[in-house]
């Protein structure tokens, strides 16, 4: 049931199935997660699914688990002190890591997007994982509260800069025990991260479509199927093939859908409606 756990939730930006730290952090409940594979809550937003599927599964999940606190996946009971903590000493340990420190600050600054912005300047794969996770959660929250589909456009624009990069995954970035050889684990983790970039961009296209946005020849809406088309075109779990497809197909499509002048225009509209940016707070 690990896909239903906090490990696979966008609100826990420190982990994915194969990447990240041994413990997690829930930015919704402000708890260090000591047993994230066995915890969940009604706010779970799956990292591994595209927008529509993730939304459908979230609705099903919310019927089974309380959104009020982290709880046990096995029986839905509220997690105890051996499973989560919010003690200062544990938070201090989390803050000793640059990604952990930034994630811990999430929601404490005036605007949440500032914390996500700060992750841009922290090098490494784990910071990108955190930015993509929180970016998806932030944009989804803004849209669900009536904000504009453009609320996450800045974050997606930043993701574009890394879109064609081969993720540099160190052995220390990998989490958990696995029967898979180390080199293959790195390959699978790379595939997951590249796919997360595409899923974040696909979210933007999906929200633009739902908003019936007709600017720029509907090209942004076409981005909604980017991750799906990548999987269909590459057909296996090869990060090399996926990255080749991204460079050949996805990057040009993104640049055509959201050229710099269009991005600047959307930003101007966004600034004029500050509520969108604050929507996630």
């Amino acid at each position: 049931m690990i896909p239903l756990s906090c490990v696979n939730c966008c609100h826990n930006p420190l982990q994915s199935d194969s990447l990240g730290t041994a413990f997690g952090f829930c930015t919704e409940h402000k708890r260090v997660l000591l047993a994230p594979s066995h915890l969940t809550c009604g706010r779970q937003l799956r990292k591994d699914l595209a927008t529509r599927s993730a939304r459908r599964e979230s609705e099903l999940h919310e019927r089974r688990f309380t959104p009020q606190a982290p709880c046990r996946l096995s029986d839905g009971k509220i997690a105890n002190g051996s499973q989560t903590t919010h003690q200062k000493a544990d938070e201090a340990r989390l803050a000793s890591d640059p990604v952990g420190e930034t994630v811990l600050e999430y929601g404490k600054l005036e605007k949440k997007i500032w914390s996500i912005a700060a992750l841009r300047y922290v090098p490494g794969t784990r910071s990108e994982l955190a930015m993509l996770s929180l970016g998806r959660a932030y944009t989804r929250r803004c849209v669900s509260r009536g904000g504009s589909w453009t609320s996450g456009v800045k974050l997606v624009w930043w993701s574009r800069r890394r879109l064609e990069e081969d993720p540099m995954i160190e052995a220390t970035d990998l989490r958990g025990e696995s029967p898979v050889p180390l080199a293959r684990r790195v390959d699978l983790a790379k595939w997951s991260l590249i796919m997360m970039r595409l899923l974040f961009i696909s979210d933007l296209g999906e929200y633009a479509g739902e908003a019936d946005y007709r600017g720029h020849g509907n090209r942004i809406r076409r981005l909604s199927s980017l991750a799906e088309r990548a999987a269909e075109a590459t057909g296996d779990l090869s990060p090399r093939r996926l990255l080749q497809w991204v460079r050949r197909e996805a990057a040009p499509q993104f640049d055509e859908a959201l050229p710099a002048d269009q991005y600047e225009r959307l930003l101007t509209e966004l600034r004029a409606n500050a509520r969108d940016e604050d929507g996630a707070d």
Partner: peptide, 12 residues
């Protein structure tokens, strides 16, 4: 995409 993700879990 979901087929590939399932494949990843099976392998992992």
């Amino acid at each position: 995409l979901e087929v590939m993700t399932a494949r990843k879990y099976v392998e992992q």
